[in-house]
Nucleic acid binder design. Structure first.
Length: 467
RNA sequence: GCUCCCUUCGUCUAGAGGCCUAGGACGGAGCCCUCUCAAGGCUUAAACGCGGGUUCGAAUCCCGCAGGGAGCGCCA
């Protein structure tokens, strides 16, 4: 039997980190077994589902490069099918019409709560023979009242529910639209899903779904309930704490492989290994290595992984990503150093591309002003003579290359009896506008002779004016 | 309230009765390297929620408790 998994988000918001991890696990499991990965959009809630959210989910999946083999399927396009199955259930005596009003149900729940009971539908319409005039009924599933339903969960193990804990849930609303739990069941059945991997907030829904499946004559799939992902503060993911769109991660300068690598280690592990290529993940991933407990997001670790991939990634690709971020900053990269060269110079000192782009701005644009602190410390009258000496040597330098610049800098400093830092740091401020840049020789090389000298002159002028 | 799930360093985790003086990673601290910022190297602090069992022996098995989470909708 080939493995068929599905990721089934509801488009009521963007794809956030929790959904992305569920998607990743589903994708990984199908890839590992050479199976099929299905994308299904659960948009039966027409009030809250939006086209923008659908697009956001699709964009997020594309950015993470989690391609589906089938779909996206939309539940709103399958309403006829759900109604058909509901009729079948009705016909077979597994479902019935319920005429209870909302008020009636609310009152019933209130009473049960008052009695410290679990609120649930008491089945008062179960054996009703006659319709109630003037009321359009809902359809409820006739849940078994005796016995137990056992979920053999691949992550949580054996979980037993008493059937009398489960009530007769509504499968078709009075407006004729099917409900979530019912659509899921019909879809999982029709799409021949073999493994349902989803958040463990669905564990309680599982016995209900299994019972419907059984009533339909189906064998339930293998379930695997994934532990939740928590915000950095250990509480539920929220807008304030970590629940941002995966696309926001791109904007913040992360690489998809870093996000994926980070995500795969949340609730899953393979010994002590921390870094996984996509291929390794596929090869090594197994449900049995999934944890049972929730995990909190650790932004620091994501940052570390991102830097790892910045340090080790393909220069051409990284250069393109840097270009994207510089463009976002409004920087014109058509003139200036090559992006690949820049990445090479910057990759050890940036945790994100956003950071790298900000720190690379001065390669393309003359700094408007010097960082006050850096200027006060380094662009002082006493360094002017050294900078002038250096300027002469730079003008005379035959080739403007890193190693040549390195030598000139060292020799000049030595000749003047200065430590290299005394010369390099003022120069850095002169050309970059601040106290931070790649090694000064690499910086000058990337900047080129003309720009470097021009900025050096400007700094000398600045010193003169401020002395 | 009822049902279900969860509980190893701050965080992610290894750990399937003796390999545990509980290992790794991120983060932290310190040192080294150094033209800035980093990167890198080395060192270091830091955890089995609590209480009972079972056993020669328990982080590992069982039972309670406590704490956390989820579900209990004509939401998904």
């Amino acid at each position: 039997m080939t493995v068929r998994t599905r990721f089934a988000p509801s488009p009521t918001g963007y794809l956030h980190i929790g959904g992305a991890r569920t998607a990743l696990f589903c994708w990984l499991y199908s890839r590992h077994h050479g199976g099929t990965f299905i994308l299904r959009i659960e948009d039966t809630d027409r009030e809250r589902s939006t086209d923008e959210a659908v697009q956001a989910i699709l964009d997020g999946m594309a950015w993470l490069d989690l391609k589906q083999d089938e779909g996206p399927f939309y539940q709103t396009q399958r309403f006829d099918r759900y109604r058909e199955v509901a009729q079948q259930l009705l016909k077979d005596g597994h479902a019935y019409h319920c005429y209870c009003s909302k008020e009636e149900l609310d009152a019933m729940r209130a009473e049960q709560m008052a009695r410290k009971e679990k609120p649930r539908y008491d089945g008062r319409c179960r054996d009703r023979k006659e319709p109630k005039p003037g009321v359009t009924p809902v359809i409820r599933f006739k849940n078994p009242q005796e016995g137990q339903t056992v979920v053999e969960d691949a992550v949580k193990g054996r979980v037993v529910f008493d059937n009398h804990e489960l009530d007769d849930l509504i499968i078709v609303r009075s407006d004729g639209n099917p409900t979530y739990n019912f659509c899921v069941v019909v879809d999982d059945m029709d799409m021949r899903i073999t493994h349902v991997m989803r958040g463990d907030d669905h564990l309680n829904n599982t016995p209900r779904q299994m019972n419907i499946l059984k009533a339909l004559g189906c064998t339930p799939p293998q379930y695997a309930h994934l532990p939740m992902i928590l915000g950095p503060d250990g509480t539920k993911l929220s807008k304030r704490h970590g629940a941002v769109s995966v696309m926001q991660y791109r904007e913040d300068g992360f690489l998809p492989e870093a996000v994926l690598n980070y995500l795969v280690r949340l609730g899953w592990s393979h010994g002590d290994q921390e870094v996984f290529s996509r291929e390794e993940m596929v090869q090594l991933f197994d449900i049995k290595d999934i944890n049972t407990s929730a995990s909190a997001i650790n932004p620091q670790k994501l940052l570390w992984l991102n830097q790892h991939y910045i340090k080790t990634g393909d220069l051409k690709r990284l250069g393109e990503e840097l270009g994207w971020h510089l463009a976002r900053l409004g920087v014109d990269v058509s003139k200036g150093p090559s992006l690949e060269g820049l990445v090479k110079a910057q990759q050890e000192r940036a945790k994100t591309f956003k950071e790298m782009a900000e720190g690379s701005r001065f390669f393309f644009e003359e700094p408007k002003e010097y960082d006050p602190q850096a200027a006060a410390k380094n662009l002082t009258p006493d360094v002017a003579p050294a900078l002038m000496t250096l300027r002469e040597k730079l003008v005379a330098l035959p080739d403007w290359t890193g190693p040549a610049l390195h030598d000139v800098l060292n020799q000049t400093a030595e000749g003047l009896g200065l430590k290299l830092g005394k010369l390099a740091q003022p120069l850095r401020v002169a050309v970059s506008g601040g106290g931070v840049s790649p090694p000064i020789d690499a910086t000058l090389e990337l900047l080129g002779r003309d720009t470097s000298l021009k900025r050096l002159d400007r700094a000398l002028e600045y010193i003169k004016q401020h002395s």
